[in-house]
Amino acid sequence: MRMSKIVRFAADVLFGAIVIFGLYVIMHGHLTPGGGFQGGAIVATGAALVIVAHSYEEVIGMIKKAVLMAQESAGLVMFAGVALIAIGLGTTFFFNFLANSGSLFGMTVPFGPNPGELNTGGVLPLMNIAVGIEVWGGLAIVILYMLSGIGKKEEA
């Protein structure tokens, strides 16, 4: 069952803004409140909006459940993988090997107030991204499954 054209158009317009805001929260997890879990939940909210506004059948034609499941698994594997790379480098599990190294996300942070430099944090931004794509895929597939029966009564 589709909603009216106004609702569908509003959902399409808002979807982009919600996804961008969610990706912003994921990307700035090491600078501002929020992080992977919160940002992934925001992106999944956009998916819920689109599924409710359009019909389930229309959305399932665009997004495959296997893709979302693969995305969720990839996020978890990436999270554990980043933690395992530290063992390969001869340190402990979950060691922050990129911090203060000068390479990717390796800028040094002095003690004091937050200057808001994105290129800091070592492996923390990578882990935020990993958790973000995991929560995004996981919550989106849960919403997709739970709303799969929406509008069935009206058709029968």
Partner: peptide
């Protein structure tokens, strides 16, 4: 130690 300004993220992820 973690080169991160957000102490909460440092504790949760590091």
């Amino acid at each position: 130690q973690a080169a991160t300004n957000n102490i909460v993220t440092t504790i949760v992820f590091d």
